[in-house]
């Protein structure tokens, strides 16, 4: 992953192939939706890394934010609710020459898909997972999500949420992700840095993004976050101590940290899967024609 220039496939004339840009589909998100900042940040990040669009796959689940792959000119897979990560992992293992980016929401990733989230991280699959965390179910018109705050009143919790919210950053740290960051869609520049860092990182990169829902979440608004977020890098933060990061991840209230929490070097799943040492699976020989030795063991 480190050498992104190696991914620019020259055309026969030597000119580089097109980079990821906007597709001809306009986003259908509500005006002012936080997700606009996220799609802009992803576009900036892959452009900056000069990865041609045909080598990028964006994989999502279902929900407002999961429509994101349609708005960029890369390959995309818009799958089932909660199942973006297993599809993304399958794509990586079929062709680990590709840059695979998972996108989705908090309900998708931390509710129905939470099991896959934990397992993808402990495997340290080399992909980047960007969640647009708006702490509400938007596409189903405003029910509580796994990250909704205690006491938050929603259509499904008219007297207030009575469950502790999932802390995605703490969960990622506990589960073995090797790049853990939190961004804010109100700061596209920093978010693009975090996503680019995640793509360059060798291993599972998780970027949780405060991406406010302007329609159904009147609590966790742009203003709410603007007043509270501060940047870890400007606080002189050292992202290598997992135990300290864990403490930092629990910080929530008047001050909420954003930026890179943690980064570590650990072999990726693809590094450890011996079959992939022969190159991307998609380019390997298929079939066992002539391998009669395989039959000998049945004698």
């Amino acid at each position: 992953m480190a050498d992104s220039s190696a991914r620019v496939v020259p055309t026969p004339t030597g000119a580089p192939l097109p980079l990821v840009g906007k597709s001809d589909t306009k986003p259908t998100w509500c005006p002012g939706c936080g997700d606009f900042g996220v799609v802009a940040a992803i576009e900036m990040a892959v452009k900056r890394l000069q990865i041609p669009s045909h080598n990028v796959v964006i994989v999502s689940g279902i929900g407002c934010s999961s429509n994101l792959p349609h708005f960029l000119s890369s390959y995309g897979f818009h799958g089932l609710h909660g199942r973006a990560l297993p599809v993304a992992e399958g794509i990586r293992w079929a062709n680990h020459g590709l840059t695979v980016i998972g996108t989705g929401g908090d309900g998708d990733g931390f509710g129905i898909g939470c099991g896959h989230f934990v397992h993808a991280m402990r495997r340290n699959v080399d992909l980047t997972y960007v969640t647009m965390d708006n702490q509400i179910y938007g596409l189903t018109t405003g029910q509580a999500s796994p990250t909704s705050s205690m006491g938050q009143k929603t259509k499904s919790t008219p007297t207030g949420v009575i469950e502790q919210p999932v802390d995605p950053v703490a969960l990622a740290l506990a589960s073995g992700a090797t790049y853990v960051a939190r961004g804010f869609s109100g700061d596209v520049k920093q978010l693009a840095d975090l996503v680019a860092g995640g793509i360059q990182h060798k291993g599972f990169a998780f970027v949780d993004v405060f991406s406010p829902c302007v329609t159904y979440n009147k609590i966790n608004t742009f203003d709410f976050f603007r007043q509270r977020v501060y940047k870890l890098e400007s606080a002189g933060h050292d992202p290598t101590n997992r135990a300290l990061e864990f403490e930092r991840s629990l910080e929530w209230g008047d001050k909420i940290p954003i930026g890179l929490f943690y980064k570590a070097d650990r072999p990726t799943y693809e590094d450890l899967e011996e079959v992939l040492s022969a190159g991307p699976l998609v380019h390997q020989k298929a079939g066992i024609e002539g391998r009669t030795d395989v039959l000998d063991e049945f004698v």
Binding site: G79, I91, R92, H119
Partner: peptide, 24 residues
């Protein structure tokens, strides 16, 4: 034989991984 064999976390993951690999 050069086959990636993955024990998934559950059957939902297993089939979605297979779909991802096939799409790949």
């Amino acid at each position: 034989l050069g086959i990636v064999v993955k024990q998934a976390e559950d059957e939902i993951a297993a089939i979605n991984m297979a779909i991802g690999a096939s799409f790949g």
